[in-house]
Nucleic acid binder design. Structure first.
Length: 973
RNA sequence: GCCCCCGUAGCCCAAUCGGCAGAGGCGGCGGACUCAAAAUCCGUGUAGUGUCAGUUCGAAUCUGACCGGGGGCACCA
């Protein structure tokens, strides 16, 4: 050491010593100090407390337009956040802060979707109660996000695991349980109604009972069974997805295309088990149709449409000669009935046994049966049995991998109703029992799958739609005139009609002659709602001695989770399809047995021992944000109407209402967003909310991804220790392989927001995340780039505060005209960018303006207050702590969270002169400056007078001169 | 296999109605400060927009085909 002075006496940094960073520079340490101070201040002042029209959070809501912004409900994972997690949270915060500064009443908060498997699995391993784990994780999560300075109304935080919250989840369940769907209501659109109204219809005789007996003649149990069959929540003994590896059943939406559970990747089996279902299918049409009323990404709408899978067509019955029954098929192309040359039943179709039995088990093949149809079996019965056995052995994956068409002839024939022709009936696994009627009419001329099957089995192919002249394919699915579509037997002809006309015509013919009717099919299935787990909402249901499920009265809520010795359901060998679910609540001692008076005296009942799926809480949490501690209702109607009600004046006459901006990842496109819309619509139908949709506008943020590196053994090495040389990557001198993808601890490429905040401050992290690209784009994380955002904040700071003295540099001097113009152009641009979530370009504009200020004023005594104050206000949504600090140092006592926000002055947005590029034959050759007020002729003259253009023309007349006002001139020679 | 989105500088990204390819950041290079380095500051633009056609006075932008990347659906009748 040289023995230099360690401190300087005058407060300035000693520039000759070891202390070289100026004392008042905006460093990470200073940022941290500022951030802690302002976060504390905001909390003390309740800066982000948002008033409601009524209730416990009542305040003045007059005058200000409301804005409800929400992030998708995070799960408080115990492993901590990486820098990708808060991307959307910061985005919504910037948007919310911008609008708050504009004077809007902004609701922005965040709660936790806290039920779920990880805490339960941890409990099973360690004995720690899931509530303890969950609460610790929430605290950890909060400490990480609080550091980011998100302007949340902390009074509105909720967690789905709070008893005060899940009490209302149970209450909503009961509303749905005590409702039925009246398909005739609202002119056929349908509406959920209280079950009591259905009972009245039966009592009064307005609606007939299933077997026609008067309602009063039914026993109470029979009445209950009838009502239960109508409920929006019902017990069903249909095939469900049983996952032995998890020990629970799961919803269709939770099974991957490969037939594995989304969580855990365990095999899932179709099993008949008695389970709770929600009748989401009743809402299929409204869930599809109302997508048109939402401001959502098309991609998500498409995914929902595909999932619901509505297709319109007709059900047609093909008679079986010598039998009273027929084969009913669903088809979207009834116009092609004349091309139906055979039929196919799904192998599991119940009619198959009847067909075999009708001909006689020991009957051989009909005379002249094609060899290809028999699979070498001696009889249809034998062939069918063999085929069914083979089909049942195939997994979903096998079926998908081999698309070759297989099947066998059943020996039976059916009659095509349009022409009376007898056509053979096959079974084949390309027809699925679960869709439509489990049977098809095969039209090889217009369906490629049928074409393929017909080719293998040598079946006739009849085109009934004329393909274009140049058509070279096999099956033709396009539009065209109908051909080969008439019959002397029935007198029907569709020839010459186009597809749409033919469909209409044939449907009315089918209906008239009793052969079928128009129909709509959906892929959507009812929602399997029960899980055999511990850490979820218990069902508010008990069973009486007959096993009839009864909804508990409201005053019995909440049903609190019991203490148990073992938190896990029994799990099984993942491949043990025949195991049976054993839920933890079934082992909760005497919890399950209750004595209640449900109207007919004190009796014994048994509690339901399932819990709700994790999606339940997120189906309605936005409503609880509105009124988090209302203990009279799940949400106050005034408050709901204020925050979520339709605003036709602002969003058009068709506005369904809902919150104003919902930001989250696209992975919830089907599951959460579909379930939530469903619940919301039920609540709307029952009159509990005024909005028809929960989320008016949806925005999908991208993912922050990262590079990961593996060594020669395939083991991940710490990404931060990898060095790049000449396009290759090295770790400790060894070359490693680069992969691109997720960020995660196991990939050793995780970067936490805390370490970034330590190194640069939270404001820098916020700014960087917003500036690295558009919010919706996925992009790689680059720690080394963060310094650029930090330098910008340092330069901004330096324009206002002297780094060496801490003195204010802003003074009351007039900026010149060019600076004013730059300022107002920036204001106009930044306002627009913020409003449209284009934070990256807003940042660029702010940096540009700040660089201009630096260039012009860094060498002189002070910077113009007018410019730097506007800069501070404009940067505030992005870097709120720094902005508040500078704003206060600029002499403002009140904070800036509620504005003002600079307004652009139009007079500085128009230029006096415009520089026009002059193109010659489309290439820029010169430039000329003309008055902004110049007319087309003047601009043209100025361009032609230009030396270089005159030279290019070489004395000739231009063939054409294109003048684009405000843009350029193109001279065509 | 079908459908959708995206390809701009070494990297992340801008570019209103089709109108000057560059706003911003990283890196690189040069310089200042330093004994030196880090930090900081100043300066510096290297691609003609994945490829090939077409429309146009003019194409990153519109159209078609192809290549590459990402996503969705996948025997749904």
């Amino acid at each position: 050491m040289s023995g230099a002075a360690e401190n300087s006496a005058d407060g300035r940094a000693d520039r000759s010593g070891t202390e070289e960073v100026p004392s008042f520079r905006y460093t990470a340490e200073m940022a941290g100090e500022i951030e802690r101070r302002w976060q504390q201040r905001w909390e003390e002042l309740g800066t982000f407390h948002t008033p409601n029209p009524s209730g416990s959070l009542q305040g003045d809501t007059s005058g200000a337009e409301k804005l409800f912004v929400q992030d998708m409900f995070p799960y408080p994972s115990g492993s901590g956040l990486h820098v990708g997690h808060p991307l959307g949270f910061i985005g919504t915060d910037v948007y919310a802060r911008f609008h708050r500064m504009l004077g809007r009443n902004v609701l922005h908060t965040m709660g936790f979707d806290a039920f779920g498997l990880p805490a339960e699995q941890y409990a099973a391993q360690t004995g720690t109660h899931p509530r303890t784990t969950t609460e610790n994780n929430i605290e950890r999560y909060l400490s990480q996000i609080r550091r980011l300075g998100l302007g949340h109304d902390e009074r509105r935080r909720i967690a789905t695991t709070d008893i005060d919250f899940y009490r209302w989840t149970q209450w909503i369940f009961l509303q749905i349980f005590h409702a039925w769907y009246d398909f005739d209501a609202d002119d056929g659109k349908g509406r959920a109604r209280p079950i009591g109204e259905l009972e009245q219809q039966f009592e009064s005789g307005e609606r007939a009972t299933p077997d026609g007996r008067p309602w009063g003649d039914l026993t109470r149990a029979e009445q209950r069974a009838v009502l239960d069959s109508y409920r929006l929540v019902y017990l069903s003994e249909e095939p469900v997805n049983w996952c032995p590896g998890l020990g629970t059943v799961v919803a269709n939406e939770e099974v991957t295309a490969e037939g594995l559970s989304e969580r855990g990747n365990f095999p899932v089996f179709r099993r008949n088990l008695k389970q709770w279902m929600m009748r989401i299918t009743a809402y299929a049409d409204r869930l599809v149709d109302d997508l048109d009323r939402l401001e959502w990404p098309e991609k998500v709408k498409t995914m929902q449409r595909n999932w619901i899978g509505r297709s319109r067509g007709a059900n047609v019955v093909f008679e079986l000669p010598g039998s009273t029954s027929g084969i009913e098929v669903f088809t979207t192309r009834p116009d092609t009935l004349f091309g139906a040359t055979y039929m196919v039943l799904a192998p599991e179709h119940p009619l198959v046994d009847e067909l075999i039995a009708a001909r006689g088990e020991d009957q051989g093949w009909p005379e002249g049966t094609d060899e290809r149809w028999t699979q070498g079996a001696a009889s249809p019965a034998e062939a069918v049995a063999a085929y069914r056995h083979a089909a049942s052995m195939k997994s979903e994956l096998d079926r998908q991998e081999t698309r070759e068409k297989t099947g066998v002839f059943t020996g039976a024939h059916a009659t095509n109703p349009v022409n009376g022709e007898s056509i053979p009936v096959f079974i084949a696994d390309y027809v699925l029992m679960a869709y439509g009627t489990g049977a098809i009419m095969a039209v090889p001329g217009q369906d490629q799958r049928d074409w393929d099957f017909a080719s293998v089995f040598g079946l006739p192919i009849v085109r009934t739609v004329e393909p274009p002249q140049d058509f070279e394919g096999e099956a033709y699915t396009g539009d065209g005139p109908a051909i080969n579509s008439s019959s002397q037997v029935t007198g029907l002809s569709l020839n010459g009609l186009d597809v749409e006309e033919a469909k209409k015509e044939i449907i009315s013919w089918l209906e008239e002659h009793g052969h079928g009717s128009g129909s709509v099919q959906y892929k959507l299935r009812d929602w399997l709602f029960a899980r055999q787990r511990y850490w979820g909402e218990p069902f508010p249901v008990v069973y009486d001695s007959d096993g009839t499920p009864l909804g508990l009265p409201e005053d019995q809520l909440p049903v609190v989770l019991p203490e148990v010795a073992d938190y896990s359901p029994r799990t099984f060998d993942p491949d043990d399809a025949n195991s049976e679910p054993e839920p933890p609540l079934a082992r909760a001692g005497d919890w399950g047995a209750v004595e209640l008076d449900l109207g007919d005296g004190l009796r014994k009942y048994e509690r339901d021992n399932n819990v709700m799926p994790q999606w339940a809480g997120s189906c309605w949490y936005q409503l609880r944000y509105i009124d988090p501690d209302n203990d009279e209702r799940f949400v106050d109607p005034d408050n709901e109407r204020y925050w979520m009600g339709p605003r036709p004046d602002r969003h058009g006459p068709d506005d369904p209402g809902g919150l104003d901006l919902y930001v989250g990842g696209v992975e919830h496109a089907v599951l959460h967003l579909l379930y939530s819309r469903f619940w919301h619509k039920v609540l709307y139908d029952l009159g509990h909310v005024s909005s028809e949709e929960p989320y008016r506008r949806l925005y999908n943020q991208g993912y922050i991804q990262a590079y990961a590196f593996t060594d020669s053994r395939g083991v991940y090495v710490p990404a931060e220790e990898v060095q790049e040389r000449d396009g290759k990557f090295f770790h400790n001198g060894q070359e490693v392989t680069r992969e691109y993808g997720k960020m995660g601890k196991s990939l050793k490429n995780s970067v936490s927001p805390d370490e970034m905040a330590d190194a640069y401050g939270a404001d820098t992290l916020r700014l960087y995340e917003m500036s690295m690209g558009p919010l919706e784009a996925s992009r790689p994380w680059a720690t080394k780039d963060v310094v650029g955002s930090h330098r910008f904040l340092q330069r901004l700071w330096r324009n206002i505060i002297d780094e060496h003295t801490g003195q204010l540099r802003a003074v009351d001097i007039e900026p010149d005209l060019e600076m004013r113009r730059a300022l107002h152009k920036t204001i106009a641009g930044v306002r627009e960018d913020y409003g449209e979530l284009r934070f990256n370009t807003a940042v660029a504009k702010l940096i540009e303006l700040n660089n201009r200020v630096t260039k012009e004023y860094s060498a002189v005594a002070g910077t113009p207050r007018e410019v730097v104050e506007a800069l501070v206000l404009m940067v505030a949504p992005l870097t709120p702590h720094l902005a508040e600090e500078l704003w206060s140092r600029l002499g403002h006592e009140a904070g800036l969270a509620h504005g003002p926000f600079p307004v652009a002055d139009e007079q500085y947005l128009v230029e006096d002169t415009v520089e026009y590029p002059i193109q010659f034959n489309g290439k820029v050759r010169s430039r000329t400056v003309v008055a902004a007020s110049a007319g087309q002729d003047e601009i043209r003259e100025a361009a032609l007078a230009d030396e270089k253009i005159a030279a290019a023309l070489d004395g000739k007349e231009p063939r054409k001169v294109i003048v684009v006002p405000g843009r350029l001139v193109n001279v065509v020679g």
